[in-house]
Design a protein around this nucleic acid. Structure first.
Length: 950
RNA sequence: GCCCAGAUGGUGGAAUUGGUAGACACGAGGGACUUAAAAUCCCUUGGCCUAACAGCCGUACGGGUUCGAGUCCCGUUCCGGGCACCA
């Protein structure tokens, strides 16, 4: 009697066995090559795992298991990004300590993850909020504080070197405060008085990547610009290295492109501009040095310090008023509204190339934070300058032959230069040379102008980056505390041997009444410098006892170097030991969402490059290959409530109108507008709502009146959206494990489509994967129960097997798991048809499927008489000879006919191909007793002979 | 506006990278087994025209290169992602 496929029993058995035998425990092993597979670790949210989470974990687990079968020593760890806003907000609401909820969520995650059968080495788990982990986050911060970026060496150096340099130059100030201020301009972690994104609703500052379209990424609250003293990381120092590094790693083009845009390198020229009748001068930055002859005005950013110096007394009032207006506008308003505004400063700048005096304006379209905060305006060839010139009626000088600038500017960087100069006397002579660009291409003209500017000391060639330094402090409780105290307002690092500085207990997680961050609520948060310990605030005397920093670190602090900690998670002496770092090097395969392109993936690369400069990390780039798994979306369902009533109307009864102003459809029922309300997907079958179920769901529906369509059904509308608790469209993996088993879940998630693609979750296809596993199990049972001693696989069996080995191996390497699963389905069908009874074939099949379906593989492996785990088997090696032994490929049945393919020499003429094919002994076998319906010859390659029985 | 990636049956998606378009799966239809259902197995399933064989048309749209194009080139439309007053 063949055993049934009882996945519940099988999976339970092997989950236990894996724990008992420590199957996934990894240690450094110099005799084997390493392979490091990593998933972006999750933030443990209260909603638990949904079916989208495991997608990346399954994909990487398959690869990890595959690599292990190939003989690699594979590190495949998992942990938790445990600091986060939701836990803190929950704490504010309930008073429940964030650690408590976070740990409860982690337990739930772990339980769910364990069901899916991952090969994680849980001994290496990290949680960013535990002191033995964040000790090293604090440590790295202190190292950054004590380092600067040496432009010449292009790497971080100890700050002492810089002090020595200043001393040698004689520029080292005697005053301690001045020393601190000077060094702050160089430290990689520094206190900076900068414009920050301040979010009043969240009560904290945000990094640039945390602000989307002028509102906070989390919650969508307004964000304003505010000048504050904050900890910052000098990420911008590494701009060039971050850019160069992209060339050395295997990431998708689109994500590299996103990072390139974010870093925003632009090569240009800085030119010094003298202000007429004044000793003030300023610098402008341009990438279009060729357009110097077309400058008709200059523009300063409203926030620029130059505005004050340049403004003439008679324009003072107008300028002040304009600045006031600019300050009143939020970041969001400035982003959406691009109407031309500006004011004349009263001053004139002298164009060093033409000698012309041009008015200096102040306008908000010039940004203070980029370049020098001052530009030269060339209205003919820049659309923004053009709009400004038209508005203020300023001259426009075209510089490119054939360019029509009567209606719009000509921004393209193509064409032949003219009017440069417009007449010989319009080009200033420097040391006997004056610039003439006429007749040159724009490219040549840029190069020539750069040379000229440099040669005559009018400015310099300069590379600018858009990448800004990262704001590194947050006014929150649930984050890493800074190991910093203040002595007379000067920051001091708490000695390294005293780390970690543990997050203090507070009774309230809100800011204090005086507006201090939540850590201001701590009563024991002062530093005893002499005794090197944390003491009560009340003891602060500014002599021996000093206040400790109240800010905490942002979310990306703990997630920036976690991959290094996995290498050596229990080490108390170092972030990672020399030995472990040398062995594991860096992550070979990193799997995670592309939404981290300008956040985590930049910070992590920066952090790693810094640690690389320190010699702690062994590779300049942390993640060699990156795969971005797509999002699994959910089907959200909506019911429609008539406005200001408790009536819900079936979707097909509603009238649809498009609203131009809101750019969306509005719905009406007998003239009353109906508003969509989320309905939980568990209450919807197809697109029909279970009215009784929804009545029991929440009070708002209980007494609702449901207006049904003529079939007596309530139809919902559906939309594909991101899976989220608040959209009530979450599908949970536990139910699938319960009903089909983890192996089916793993198979199905991979079978859904290419990993990198986003797709809506749809259970419809899951039966196909489940059926396949049952078939495979059935085939295996037949083989295992076969008593015959003959043990030689037939040529056909070997062909089916090796076709599979070839396909699966190639597909796994390319992460094309869906097609390799198809190949399995074909192979199992073929072997079933061949009535395969061979244990060797089965054995190899089991190894091939082990990465995908580890539970069933383990069970069959054991049934085949093996004592060890299938994880320690060897990946089958493909052998060409089983495929080319015959010229005839496996015949394919279709439409009641049989089709087969012959491979023939490439350069054989068409007629000969046909003749050779029909006469070949291989074909003869198949052609006997058959009628040839049709032959199709693909020149020089393949011939298809379609046959049917006579 | 700029940059990137896409568009293939009723559906999810294959196609050895220029060589039989639609693998595999879902769904649908038909059949077998069964008292019945579930489960399982077999057949059909891009469109048109056919009793059937055969034939014609088909990879968003319009051109082009090629013996041969889903794949390469030019143009258009649509969807997704990133950046967005960055000089």
């Amino acid at each position: 009697m063949a055993k049934e496929y009882n996945f519940r029993e099988i999976e339970k058995k092997w989950h236990q066995r894996w724990i008992e035998q420590q199957t996934y425990h990894v240690t450094e092993d110099a005799t084997r090559p390493k392979f490091y597979v990593l998933n972006m670790f999750p933030y443990p949210s209260g909603a638990g795992l949904h079916v989208g989470h495991p997608l990346g974990y399954i994909a990487s687990d398959i690869y990890a298991r595959y690599k292990r079968l190939q003989g690699f020593n594979v590190l495949n760890p998992m942990g938790y990004d445990a600091y986060g806003l939701p836990a803190e907000q929950y704490a504010i609401k309930t008073g429940q300590h964030p650690e408590k909820t976070t740990f409860a969520n982690i337990d739930r995650y772990r339980e769910q993850l364990d069901k899916i059968g991952f090969s994680f080495d849980w001994d290496r788990e990290v949680r960013t909020c535990t002191p033995n982990y964040y000790k090293w986050t604090q440590w790295a911060f202190q190292k950054m504080y004590n380092s600067y970026f040496d432009e010449e060496l292009q790497k971080a150096q100890p700050i002492e070197k810089l002090i020595e340099k200043f001393k040698a130059e004689g520029t080292w100030p005697a005053d301690e405060k001045e020393q601190s201020e000077l060094l702050m301009q160089y430290r990689l972690a520094y206190l900076g008085e900068t414009m920050v994104n301040w979010c009043p609703a969240l009560g904290t500052v945000l990094a640039n990547d945390e602000v989307v379209n002028g509102v906070s990424e989390r919650g969508g609250y307004p964000v304003e610009q505010k000048k504050m003293r904050q900890w910052c990381l000098r990420v911008s120092a590494y701009s060039q290295r971050l850019l160069d590094g992209l060339e050395t790693i295997q990431w998708s083009e689109s994500i590299k492109e996103t990072q390139k845009n974010w870093i925003g390198r632009s090569e240009g020229t800085e030119v010094e501009i003298k202000v007429l009748d004044s000793d003030v001068d300023f610098t402008i930055f341009t990438t279009r040095a060729d357009t110097m002859f077309g400058v008709t005005f200059f523009v300063l950013a409203p926030e620029s310090e130059l505005v004050d110096k340049v403004t003439t007394p008679d324009q003072r009032a107008a300028v002040d008023e304009y600045i006031k207006y600019v300050k009143s506008r939020t970041e969001r308003e400035r982003m959406i509204d691009h109407t031309v505004t500006g004011v004349f400063s009263g001053a004139y700048g002298i164009n060093p190339i033409t000698g012309d005096k041009c008015p200096i304006y102040v306008a908000e379209y010039v940004l203070a934070g980029y370049g020098t905060g001052a530009i030269m305006a060339v209205p003919a060839h820049d659309s923004r300058d053009y709009a400004f010139a038209k508005h203020f009626n300023l001259p426009i000088i075209p510089l490119v032959e054939g360019a029509d600038v009567s209606e719009e500017s000509y921004d393209a960087k193509e064409g032949i230069v003219m009017n440069s100069p417009i007449s010989p006397d319009k080009s200033v002579n420097y040391d006997g040379e004056s610039l003439n660009l006429n007749g040159k291409t724009i490219k040549e003209a840029i190069a020539e102008t750069k040379r000229f500017v440099k040669a005559h000391n009018l400015g310099r060639v300069k590379v600018n980056y858009r990448l800004r330094d990262a704001i590194f402090s947050r006014q929150r409780y649930w984050g890493e505390p800074f190991p910093v105290y203040y002595k007379n307002g000067i920051p001091q690092m708490i000695p390294e041997e005293c780390l970690p500085i543990e997050l203090p207990q507070v009774d309230k997680f809100l800011p204090t009444e005086t507006g201090e961050p939540p850590l201001g609520n701590a009563t024991k948060w002062a530093w005893d410098e002499k005794n090197k310990k944390i003491v009560e605030n009340s003891l602060i005397d500014e002599k021996n006892i000093f206040p400790i920093e109240l800010y905490t670190m942002p979310g990306f602090a703990g997630s920036s170097a976690y991959y290094l900690r996995y290498m050596d998670p229990h080490n108390n002496e170092a972030l990672v030991s020399e030995n472990a770092a040398s062995y594991w090097q860096n992550v070979d395969l990193y799997v995670g969402g592309s939404e981290h392109a300008t956040g985590h993936l930049i910070y992590s690369r920066f952090w790693n490059k810094f640690l690389f400069d320190l010699g702690v990390s062994k590779k300049d780039e942390p993640f060699q290959k990156l795969i971005n798994q797509g999002m699994i979306q959910g089907w959200s369902s909506f019911v429609y409530r008539l406005r200001n009533t408790n009536k819900f109307v079936s979707f097909d009864l509603l009238e649809e109108k498009y609203d131009d102003a809101k750019k969306k459809n509005l719905y009406y029922y007998q003239g009353t507008e109906a508003d969509p309300v989320y309905a939980d997907i568990s209450m919807v079958n197809g697109n029909v709502l279970d009215v009784e179920k929804i009545r029991q769901w929440t009070p708002e529906f209980r007494d609702g009146e449901f207006i049904l369509n003529q079939n007596g059904q309530y139809i919902v509308s559906q939309a594909i959206e991101k899976m989220s608790k608040s959209k009530y469209n979450v599908v949970n993996p536990d139910d699938i494990c319960e009903n089909y088993g983890a192996d089916t879940l793993r198979l199905y998630e991979m079978f859904l489509g290419p990993i990198e693609q986003s797709k809506p979750w749809d259970v419809a296809g899951i039966d196909g994967c489940f059926r396949f596993l049952k078939k495979f199990w059935g085939l295996a049972q037949n083989i295992l129960n076969n008593q015959s001693t003959q043990n030689n696989p037939t040529a056909e069996e070997m062909k089916a097997l090796h076709k599979l080995i070839k396909k699966v191996t190639a597909d796994i390497e390319e992460f094309s798991y869906n097609t390799s699963i198809s190949a399995f389905m074909v192979a199992v069908n073929e072997l079933s048809q061949l009535k395969c009874a061979n244990r060797t074939i089965l054995e190899q099949m089991v190894v091939l499927i082990a990465p995908f379906c580890p539970h069933i593989a383990e069970d069959l492996w054991e049934a085949l008489g093996h004592q060890t785990s299938v994880c320690d088997a060897h990946w089958p090696v493909f052998d060409e000879k089983y495929l080319v032994e015959s010229m005839v490929k496996m015949p394919v049945q279709f439409n009641g006919k049989v089709r087969f393919t012959l491979e023939l020499p490439v350069d054989m003429p068409k007629e000969d191909v046909e003749k050779a094919a029909l006469e070949s002994p291989d074909a003869a076998k198949y052609l006997e007793g058959q009628q040839i319906v049709k032959t199709v010859v693909v020149p020089g390659r393949i011939i298809n002979i379609v046959i049917k029985p006579l």
